[in-house]
């Protein structure tokens, strides 16, 4: 985070107590914070100011958080972290499909939220810079050359294995739902065939992980999907 332009975070939450500690915690970590106590206000601020990250509470009296998310997504790709009291996996899947970047269940600790915010911002920056090579642990993926190497040794992946890895790598650090992976790689008809995906991921892990039973690169988000570990930063 450069000192000249601290990232700007918009907090949309109707509970004053939550806004208060979020502001304190985020400012202590060097962010600039805007607050909105309703969905409408939040959307207005998002159009008027330059925002780097939105933290959005799902339960608000004036409009449902997922409506705010949908409206926001119609014109902006700013990263959004959703706060919710519901810790159901179906809800997570729904919000991720709606375009949320991450999902935090209330109550949560400040350290956890800061880590998620940092990851979301980094992911967004990387997405915009359009890197063609990413490195995670001992694994390097070169999108331009369609080359995957582990410890410098080239791996032979089947076209579908590469495609799965590519989709996950494009969103590295972010959860990609089972449904999305299945429909992008195998087509709409297979969105419920999770067990094929499991077998596939097991084979892929045997190729890219040091110990497939203790994955460090291709990680599972139970009941939701998969994500690739956060890549090492080439430049801060």
């Amino acid at each position: 985070m450069s000192a000249q332009h601290p990232p700007v975070i918009l907090v949309i939450d109707d509970e004053a107590q939550i806004r208060r500690f979020l502001r304190a915690g985020l400012e202590l970590d060097g962010y600039t914070v805007h607050e909105a106590e309703s969905g409408q206000t939040g959307l207005r601020i998002a159009t008027m100011r330059s925002i780097d990250l939105v933290i959005l509470d799902l339960a608000m009296p004036d409009m449902d958080g997922s409506d705010v998310l949908e409206r926001l997504r119609s014109w902006s790709n700013v990263p959004v972290i959703v706060l919710s009291v519901r810790s159901s996996e179906d809800e997570k899947v729904r919000l991720l499909e709606l375009g949320a970047d991450d999902y935090v269940v209330k109550p949560f600790g400040m350290a956890e939220l800061l880590a998620r915010a940092k990851a979301a911002l980094r992911r967004h920056r990387r997405g915009e810079s359009g890197e063609s090579v990413i490195t995670i642990e001992h694994l390097t993926i070169d999108f331009a050359a369609r080359r995957v190497t582990a410890n410098g040794k080239r791996l032979s992946l089947t076209p579908k294995e590469y495609r799965v890895l590519q989709i996950l790598a494009q969103h590295a650090g972010k959860v990609v739902t089972h449904q999305r992976l299945l429909s992008e790689v195998w087509g709409q008809w297979h969105v419920h065939d999770t067990h094929y995906l499991r077998i596939f991921v097991r084979k892929l892990r045997q190729k890219i992980e040091t110990d497939a039973t203790k994955p460090r690169i291709l990680l599972t988000e139970l009941g939701v999907g998969y994500r690739l570990a956060v890549p090492m930063d080439v430049a801060p």
Binding site: Q17, F21, A24, F108, M110
Partner: peptide
């Protein structure tokens, strides 16, 4: 209230 308490205490502990 616990959401606010946990948030506030973790913020304080991290300051």
């Amino acid at each position: 209230p616990l959401a606010a308490i946990l948030g506030a205490t973790t913020t304080i502990a991290g300051a």
